[in-house]
Design a protein around this nucleic acid. Sequence first.
DNA 1: CCTATATTGATAATCATTTTCATGTGGAGG
DNA 2: CCTCCACATGAAAATGATTATCAATATAGG
Lengths: 142, 142
Amino acid sequence: MEEGFEKFRQYLCEKGLKSTRQRKIILKAFLKSTSHLSTEDLYLSLRKKYPGIGYATVYRTLKLFAECGIAEEQNFGDGQTRFEPSHQENHHDHLVCTACHSIIEFENPQIEKLQEEVAANHGFTTTHHRLELYGLCHKCSS
Amino acid sequence: MEEGFEKFRQYLCEKGLKSTRQRKIILKAFLKSTSHLSTEDLYLSLRKKYPGIGYATVYRTLKLFAECGIAEEQNFGDGQTRFEPSHQENHHDHLVCTACHSIIEFENPQIEKLQEEVAANHGFTTTHHRLELYGLCHKCSS
DNA sequence: CCTATATTGATAATCATTTTCATGTGGAGG
DNA sequence: CCTCCACATGAAAATGATTATCAATATAGG
């Protein structure tokens, strides 16, 4: 979590952007969150404590987070973009149950490694990736 | 391609839906296509030959295709949903250039295999998956 | 051929996201 | 501390993709 703050501070500095009250509030709430938040989710939960914060600011700020690498964008096909804090040490992917919509996270360094190889073979420099396995979870398949 | 028509015919029959001129036209054009078409792409290309076909119909029909399994929805983060014919024999994944939006397809059986293992370890029965690697393609990274 | 019902095309409506713009604020340099 | 100005903010309007509405039309079964 600390590195999140540090990384953001540095990014703002590099780009000549400013550290504002709102950005700090949003960053703190975001890094604390565990689940896959949509902009709306985050906006609504912030709203309770800090009524002044605007929808647009949350959008803009989450996009900033994604740009500087402390957030990852995800799209599970429900029409809303979701974000989650990216912990670069242990990146994880998702198993999505198409019946009960539960989400299980997993890590697999072997897959990650193969992905890098594929990218390299095609002359690609990858910044991030997305892997989702859809199907029925243990409960739903019985 | 033939199975596409057959599968669609059967799906319509099951659901009590009708086989119309437009659906045939759209299905034919869709199955012929190779790339990752957005609804707009398909609409515009159809428009040339069949000016009568409406935007909404293309949307509705592509959604039908996805429901009955002859199309796969994809979302590369450019704000448009794309579709491609699903050829279940040789599934492929995507490298997406975040600068020029070019898309490279690749297959990697090793990754597929590892995915199955992960799913099995979590008691999941997978129906499909999605893997996308984002970054800069050879051209854009120089 | 008739009829009930699904489908179509045009258009309006909706939803997420982005832009606009007037106003406010952080922070570098005095 | 002040001042200044570029950047940021919030509210509202604008945009772009997608979906719903509805009157007119076409399909499939009898």
